[in-house]
Nucleic acid binder design. Structure first.
Length: 1031
RNA sequence: GGGCGAUUAGCUCAGUUGGUUAGAGCGCUACGUUGACAUCGUAGAGGUCACAGAUUCGAAUUCUGUAUCGCCCA
């Protein structure tokens, strides 16, 4: 058998994928003979290709899925993608502008949607291919898309149900308006950035002031243009008590403050006192004027606006008065609601000033701002202009500033829905890991804020509501009776509601349960029009676990697989997605969607920033796979998935010419070409646009963090290669475990422990720990010790057969345990192992099956677990280590064999005697004496293993380097003395001796004794060596 | 402003209920390639566990505060 000494992942992976696919290894069916286990994939957005974060997310899911499949569950991993309304439409629109200089309105709804479908097809294909190449064992025959017919049906039925339950209502609400995309975006899609701005002070004249009253009021704003929509100026209803309250808080803070803070607070208190003196009387006067109904003249618009008393005005800040623009500021909106103020919308959907802005109509916000300030200045109504840092809300989708905007939106009432999702997590029906994320989930739902679900987009599930509005009472009654007549008996398919608006007019809203219902036409003939808006993407994602299984239709799959077992996702969508899946599942099915949720860390780049394509630091999993292989990608990700903290992963460009890795910096990650510092070749990056730049070969962005994992794959491959090379004459045989030599029983015991730890670890999402356990076991125990010991045994005809049996079993078990993390290399080796040892196992050989992917997961054999054996073996390992240390300090060449004498107890002798030959293999040692009577050599290098009561002596006759030996012993002596001093101090501390538990004290005493003995022995050795050099 | 988390070797991270000399990988140093593996082996150097207090016989670990960083919410 010839096996190459490198695992050719590129060649193997494609073949293995095909074999699995042909054998339908990942296909799940309803199978009453097995217990079901299902996970739904968090559907990736079709907006763009997958990055390393997806790589992590899907690797973790696949590890669980693969283990469960091997454990015999009927395992379904449901794949699919998400249409990601705003994000995807925004990308396509941006390209439209860039490439054709067209807007969506130039194209029209149908044509734009068609373009987005084309985009979706392209990226869905790419994404699914990425997942497949990573080895994700999804049931690809069931692949879904949040906008496909089945999901659409689920969305429609759910929406109708909520509408019928009166949980969907229409409201004018202040929304975050993206005036570039011309849609509302949710709070979660808004980022606040700090920007330098100004604080402009204006004066509004008072109309008919009474004697003694001021003739103008000062207000200040960071957004002057909004004054066009002002409908009031507010002053605090009780400025004195408000100031008292502020002062009280400051005093309380002062009492607890440190020196530095207290100075600051004192200054604030002084300012407050000053304000009380100079401004309070005026604020009280203004409050009284407000009570008396005094009005102000809004400049530029020449509109009378009231002076109102409202707690939103802060007497401790600025002039103490605040302008109120209810239609363009969230806080002012609240004031407007409280004081029943008119709400004047001054903005067009595209962000320009509308007719309400009078002379300013048609200007952009920016232009209007400039002009308003200039005009007020002209009128001598402009006061100070301060520099100030302001929070500027930016749309995460378009990167344009957000305008608060009053718009008609559909809302889902969250009250009872949210409560159900709270209860289910609070009662641990749904468990969230790590547990700390529970709080955020519960707090967010606890606010029970209604969910605005309208999106002014074309890409998504169009809202199934037809409406007629602005009807007077009589017309309403007439139309309503017609609606009732049309609906008639079909009230399970159509539903309506009537709303009265502020101005006493009515609107009628009809919701239809199914797509293309013939009733549509009937309503349209009555003048009903379908709402052009689409639903928030999360509405369809919220149904994902059950819509993918066929809901609302009854399906055998739904019956069998639901609820799913676990959801593995990232923390930023706990509220947006996880919470909504819980409440929607409860609403639609009365069931939880999943029993557990695991939140995994995020991957950051070397600078601690999130990876993203727009920064240029994003890593494509495919690039990592091409360079390091899919197993290395997966193992490399799994081993960093702890539950504590996000992971930093420094990234590099790979020079396509010389393969050197070049660290990414803020500078070089945003340039179109980079010159390799090693070979001076120039390569292009994702930013290359000009033909000249693109002509250079592309440099992939990867991370050297995957080298460790790649090396591990190689180590496993080569260990397997060794095993396979020594199985040529393998014959299956049963093994009597009790009569096996120590090293075999040690391996079996370790396998039992590792199997238990890994099984429990994967079940509790401890990926990093499992990876480490497997890495250490495979490398440091199986390879470094078991295989090394097996070498001489395989040359011994008497031992060869059993050795082959145990070794084949060890490799077999290791492959199974590693398979969920490293599916390709393990499947590849599995095929070779099946050729060499078709039947294998301890104690009795069995048929392992054609695929490790479908092989049985190991069960920790408690009978093989033997602590005494493991302890004994570690004695052996320590002796090996001692010999190696002495050799290294003496620079004895590895190929030289050195005589070694081991002084030990009778018990240790019994253990070590049968293993003497292995010291040769592992430490190049020839054991000349072993047992209680073993003596030092004439030219001796000793090392005492006091805790084991073993002295290791190496004969240096042929190699003695006195200086080196003296140095080694002196260093040892120094270390011992330091430790002894520490222990002595500890033990001379009376309260330690008195108060620490007895066993701790006893252990300290014992170890001190041992150290002293060792020091004496080293002292003796030193003396002998010194006298020898003198003689 | 509120909440959550982090700070351990040059880098990236582990570190169970407080108890021998705080670990790993990469990087670094020295030595070593005819048979599984140089994507390797053996050994070594490298740490005031962010800082300041408190609790305790004993603190990387528990508590309080400070600083810095990250995320979420307002």
């Amino acid at each position: 058998m010839t096996i190459p000494n490198r695992f050719d992942h590129a060649d193997a992976a494609a073949k293995i994928l095909k074999i699995w696919d042909d054998a339908q290894c990942a296909h799940a069916t309803v199978n009453p003979d097995r217990e079901p286990f299902m996970i739904v994939i968090p559907p990736p957005n079709v907006t763009g290709a997958l990055h390393l974060g997806h790589g992590l997310n899907n690797t973790l899911q696949d590890i669980v899925i693969r283990m469960k499949r091997m454990q015999g569950f009927e395992t379904l991993w449901m794949p699919g993608t998400d249409h990601a309304g705003i994000a995807t439409q925004a990308v396509v629109e941006r390209r439209l502008v860039e490439q054709e200089n067209k807007t969506r309105h130039d194209l029209g709804r149908e044509a734009l949607v068609q373009r987005i479908w084309a985009w979706k097809d392209q990226y869905e294909k790419r994404i699914l291919n990425q997942l497949k190449r990573m080895g994700a064992s999804c049931d690809w025959q069931r692949t879904r898309f949040t906008l496909d017919d089945q999901c659409a049906k689920a969305v429609r039925v759910t929406f109708f149900d909520l509408f019928t339950k009166q949980l969907i209502y229409r409201g004018k609400r202040l929304v975050n308006w993206d005036s570039h995309l011309e849609t509302a975006v949710s709070n979660d899609e808004v980022n606040n950035v700090k920007k330098k701005g100004h604080f402009w002070h204006f004066y509004y004249p008072v109309i008919d002031p009474k004697p003694g009253e001021p003739n103008r009021v000062e207000i200040a704003t960071t957004r002057p243009e909004t004054m066009l929509g002002d409908t009031a100026v507010a002053v605090h209803p009780n400025p004195e008590s408000a100031l008292d309250k502020v002062e009280k808080e400051l005093q309380a803070k002062l009492a607890e403050a440190n020196e530095k803070e207290s100075a600051e607070i004192k200054t604030q208190l002084e300012q407050l006192a000053e304000r009380r003196k100079t401004m309070l009387p005026q604020l009280i006067q203004l409050r009284d004027m407000a009570a008396d109904g005094r009005k102000l003249m809004l400049p530029l618009m020449n509109r009378e606006i009231p002076l109102v008393a409202d707690r939103w005005a802060k007497p401790e800040l600025g002039s103490g008065c605040v302008k109120i623009t209810p239609a363009h500021d969230p806080n002012d909106y609240e004031v407007g609601m409280r004081a029943d103020l008119p709400m004047i919308n001054i903005m067009n959907p595209n962000g320009t000033i509308n007719a309400e802005g009078g002379a300013y109509a048609g200007m952009t916000m920016k232009e209007a701002r400039k002009k308003v300030v200039a005009d007020l200045d002209e009128l001598e109504l402009l006061g100070d202009v301060e520099d100030r840092e302001v929070d500027l809300p930016i749309s995460d989708r378009s990167k344009f500033p957000i305008e608060p905007y009053l718009a008609d939106q559909w809302f889902v009432k969250m009250d009872t829905l949210a409560q159900s999702a709270i209860d289910l997590v609070a009662d641990e029906e749904v468990k969230i890991f790590p547990e700390r994320y529970r709080k955020g989930y519960l707090d967010w739902l606890g606010e029970k804020r209604d969910w605005p679900v309208s999106r002014q987009l074309w890409w998504g599930h169009q809202i199934p509501i037809w409406s007629v509005s602005r009807l007077d009472a009589a017309t309403k009654d007439e139309l309503e009776s017609k609606v009732v007549a049309i609906i008639g008996q079909a009230n399970d398919m159509a539903s309506y509601r009537v709303d009265e608006s502020d101005d006493g007019l009515f609107g009628i809203f009809v919701c239809l349960r199914t797509e293309d219902d013939p009733l549509e036409k009937d309503f349209e003939e009555l003048g009903f029009q379908r709402d052009p808006d689409v639903l928030d993407t999360w509405f369809s994602s919220a149904l994902w676990p059950h819509s993918t299984l066929g809901w609302p239709d009854a399906s055998a799959e739904l019956e069998y697989f639901y609820p799913t077992a676990t959801l593995i996702t990232s923390r930023d969508i706990i509220t947006l997605w996880v919470a909504r899946m819980v409440l929607m599942s409860w609403n639609n099915l009365g069931k939880i969607p999943f029993r557990e949720v695991f939140i995994h860390p995020k991957i950051l780049d070397g600078l601690g920033e999130t990876m993203s394509k727009s920064k240029g630091n994003g890593v494509d999993p495919i690039d990592v796979i091409d360079k390091f292989g899919p197993d290395a990608l997966r193992f490399g990700l799994a081993r960093i998935a702890t539950d504590t903290q996000d992971v930093r992963m420094p990234v590099q460009y790979e020079c396509p010419a010389c393969e050197k890795l070049i660290d990414q910096t803020k500078k070089n990650r945003s340039v179109p070409t980079v010159q390799c510092p090693a070979c001076k070749a120039v390569f292009s990056t994702q930013w290359a646009e000009s033909e000249a730049d693109k002509a250079h070969p592309r440099g992939a962005v990867v991370s050297e963090r995957f080298e460790t994992a790649r090396n591990f794959v190689n180590k496993l491959w080569n260990a397997a290669r060794f095993v396979l090379m020594n199985l040529e004459d393998y014959q299956p045989q049963s093994v009597d475990v009790d009569t096996l030599p120590l090293e075999d029983r040690w391996l079996l015991s370790r396998l039992s422990t590792v199997t238990r730890e890994v099984t429990e670890g994967i079940e509790s999402y401890k990926y990093a720990e499992c990876s480490r356990i497997l890495y250490d076991f495979a490398w440091d125990e199986f390879c470094s010790f078991y295989v090394e010991i097996a070498k001489p045994r395989l040359n011994d005809e008497k031992l060869r057969g059993t050795t082959q049996a145990v070794m084949a079993h060890g490799l077999d078990q290791l492959l199974r345990l590693l398979h969920p993390t490293m599916p390709f290399v393990t499947e590849s080796i599995w095929a070779f192992l099946n050729d060499a040892a078709a039947s294998r196992g301890v104690p009795a050989p069995t048929d392992p099956g054609p695929f490790v992917m479908k092989a049985a997961w190991p069960i920790a054999n408690a009978q093989h677990n033997d602590e005494a054996i493991e302890h004994q073996f570690s004695e052996f390992q320590e002796v090996v280590g001692a010999i190696r240390k002495i050799r290294a300090s003496q620079s004895i060449p590895p190929r030289e064999t050195v005589p070694v004498a081991i002084r030990c107890s009778e018990a240790s002798l019994a253990l070590l005697q049968p293993m003497t030959t292995y010291f040769g293999q592992l430490a190049g040692a020839d054991i000349t004496a072993i047992g209680p009577d073993a003596k030092p050599f004439e030219t001796d290098a000793p090392l005492a293993l006091t805790s084991l009561d073993i002295d290791v002596h190496v004969d240096l006759e042929k190699f003695i380097d006195v200086e080196a030996e003296l140095a080694r012993l002196q260093k040892l002596q120094g270390q011992l003395e330091k430790q002894i001093t520490g222990k002595q101090q500890k033990l001379s501390n009376e309260s330690f001796v008195a108060r620490a538990p007895e066993d701790v004290v006893a252990r300290e005493r014992e170890s001190l004794d041992e150290l002293v003995r060792q020091l004496q022995s080293v002292g003796g050795d030193l003396e002998r060596l010194e006298s020898k050099t003198k003689s």
